[in-house]
Amino acid sequence: MYLQDLIFTLQSFWANKGCVVEQPVDVEVGAGTFHPATFLRVLGPEPWNAAFAQFCRRPSDGRYGENPNRAGAYYQFQVGLKPSPLHVQDLYLDSLRAIGLDPAVHDVRFVEDDWESPTLGAWGLGWEVWCDGMEVTQFTYFQQAGGIDLMPVTAELTYGVERLAMYLQNVDNMFDLQWDKNVTYGQLRQPWEVEYSTYHFEELTADIAFKNFDTFEGECKRLLARPAGPLVLPAYEFCMKASHAFNSLDARGAISVTERQRFIGRVRGMAKACAETYVASRARLGFPLLPKHLQQAAVDAFNGAADAGVNAGALAAARAVAPFEKEIAHAS
């Protein structure tokens, strides 16, 4: 199975289960979780089911295209199911069958792996899914994001595209993967790896990146505090950009161990502020992804509890509609 066929197959599999096939976000991110389709959509009472491939940059993992298993960027295939269906494990196992990993042939198991993102103020419980001892998916029930308790809970499935493809194509080096019939992964990606490793490790100008971080943070805060009303989507984009600036500086070795925690705290501060503002903005819009007849109840509950904070408001809104969960969209 070519790498692109793997992505096609997962896309159509999850589209058939009721997912929106989103497109990757056009901003540098370290993981699909940063995509607004995940980080923002998991907040509040509205249902949301989406699947997409995301190009993820991890500057510190760059190896100049020389390591067969590590690279400074790679692809995640991300699925978010909100609310998490009770049979989500079965759905997931069917998706493995769809790409040719049959549990009758392979040893598939769910091994504890709790997930936490200190920069996003997010955590969840779940597993890494092993196929013959290889981790192929991160499977997480999101409990909190941006410091906000999540109800309903989102199940996030993150497939490692290259890993799966290497297993399916039986190659030992990711750069030997066939992207399609004619082009290899290496032909597509190796020059990028060489240049970006050189850039991140040798050429990146720390002063500029530090200044960028400050600018992004400043814009994020300014847009959230805008007197005419917050612009949360652009604000969150600056949060993503600041996070990437931090990752780049980290790879460059420009951030000391003590400063590291401070920078993580600053990104988390932005993520939390965006999360709270986002839920409030969805409430103002009337939680439009809820069925029409439930929207008002959710908004009323949110407003009724919002004095105690956005977290309380979000939980109240979810509790107001939870008794009608069968009338709310869910993946099946």
Binding site: P68, H106, D107, C131, M134, Y167
Partner: peptide, 28 residues
């Protein structure tokens, strides 16, 4: 030596998969 959590059609498939994972870890 390792334990699978199931009976598979052909254990050598699982064996090879595990060997591959370990080889990449040991390379690291």
């Amino acid at each position: 030596a390792t334990m699978m959590a199931t009976i598979v059609k052909d254990p050598t498939v699982v064996q090879k998969g595990n060997q591959k994972v370990l080889a990449s870890r040991l390379t690291d």
